[in-house]
């Protein structure tokens, strides 16, 4: 009997979020007939892209026991830089490259401060967020610019299709596969997970923990650079502080994701599900004319639910250890 309840608890802890997601889909599709239309599904997926991409970067960093909030400011700053370049007539390729380089440079600076000088990653990246917001204002003068007025081509990155699928979806799913395979199948990916579980264990076998950590911050920065690029193109312009909303959504997606599949542990499939869940809720509620200001309320409740699931799960694990 208790074996049965144990298995049931395990099942809920690992697949509870997936069930909740399916339940939400069922409820929304009964509530509104437009919800399951291909056009709307595409909408959800496209909207999820920048959040998903951003959350993958964050998962990587949270997995090794650190945090990076810089994306909340980096996204907007990259938007401002992109607009400057597009207005000045740079080619799409060079614009993309600059975005990614900025992201990596940001990651490198954070790595130097956190790994090299031993500063707290929370404080450093919180500060970075504010610095980037300041730089965004400095570069873009706080004015919203629309890209289509200057360069239509670059917008194809997010508006184009490859076969039936819009390009952003391919970018998101591609990055997901890449991250997932990297983390679960390669040595480096496994070491990043091990860093978060027991740093000493990694150190003791003679691996270069600082290099690993620093490298992960740079990889995270690269992904945040990509986030800035996609988000700016998705909006179609540089909007003031456009990355701000990502802050809580990305953290939420990663947390929500940790309640799925590998209960209590950050994992990429969970993060993807978490990100999709967030936008599904927004989309479903919006379709049904729920007032926009209730949406954060519903999302907040979901987040607390997810944390509750993981906390209960962790409690269980700790019980066994004593």
């Amino acid at each position: 009997m208790s074996q049965k309840t144990d298995n049931w608890n395990k099942f809920i802890a690992n697949y509870g979020l997936l069930l909740a997601f399916l339940l939400a889909i069922i409820v929304f599709s009964l509530w509104s007939e437009n919800f399951l239309r291909w056009g709307n599904v595409q909408n959800i997926l496209i909207q999820t892209t920048s959040l998903g991409v951003c959350a993958f970067g964050l998962t990587l960093i949270m997995m090794m026991g650190e945090i990076d909030l810089s994306y909340a400011g980096l996204t907007g700053m990259i938007g401002a830089v992109m607009l400057k370049m597009i207005v000045a007539g740079y080619s799409p390729v060079s614009v993309v490259l600059v975005c990614l380089i900025i992201g990596m440079a940001s990651g490198l600076c954070i790595a130097i401060l956190v790994v090299g000088l031993g500063m707290s990653s929370f404080m450093v990246t919180l500060a970075a967020w504010f610095i980037y917001m300041g730089l965004e204002r400095y570069i873009g003068h706080g004015v919203t610019h629309w890209i289509y007025k200057y360069d239509e081509n670059i917008l194809q990155i997010v508006q184009g299709h490859a076969g039936p699928l819009p390009v952003p979806i391919i970018i998101m799913l591609g990055l997901f596969l890449l991250c997932w395979l990297f983390q679960t199948r390669t040595r480096t990916g496994q070491y990043i997970l091990a860093l978060g579980e027991n740093l000493e264990a990694v150190k003791e076998v003679g691996l270069k923990t600082k290099l690993l950590k620093g490298g992960t911050f740079v990889a995270g920065g690269l992904i945040f650079g990509l986030t800035g690029l996609i988000e700016t193109l998705r909006i179609g312009g540089s909007m003031v502080y456009s990355g701000r909303f990502l802050l809580i959504y990305a953290l939420g997606a990663v947390f929500l994701g940790s309640a799925a599949f590998k209960a209590g542990k950050y994992n990429f499939p969970g993060t993807l599900l978490g990100a999709l869940f967030f936008y599904t809720i927004i989309n479903g509620l919006t379709l049904n004319m729920v007032k926009f200001y209730y949406i954060p309320l519903v999302q907040g409740l979901f987040l607390i639910l997810a944390v509750a699931i993981t906390t209960v799960k962790r409690g269980e694990i700790e019980q066994v250890q004593f």
């Binding site: 395979l181 199948r185 390669t186 496994q190 579980e197 027991n198 264990a201 990694v202 542990k265």
Partner: peptide
């Protein structure tokens, strides 16, 4: 100093994991 969520085999070979052609 072990990684609790890794298998015994993985902990034993930590740092010297064999990889295939793909780097996995």
């Amino acid at each position: 100093n072990l990684v609790p969520i890794f298998t015994v085999a993985h902990n034993v070979c930590m740092g010297l994991e064999p990889v295939n052609k793909l780097g996995f």
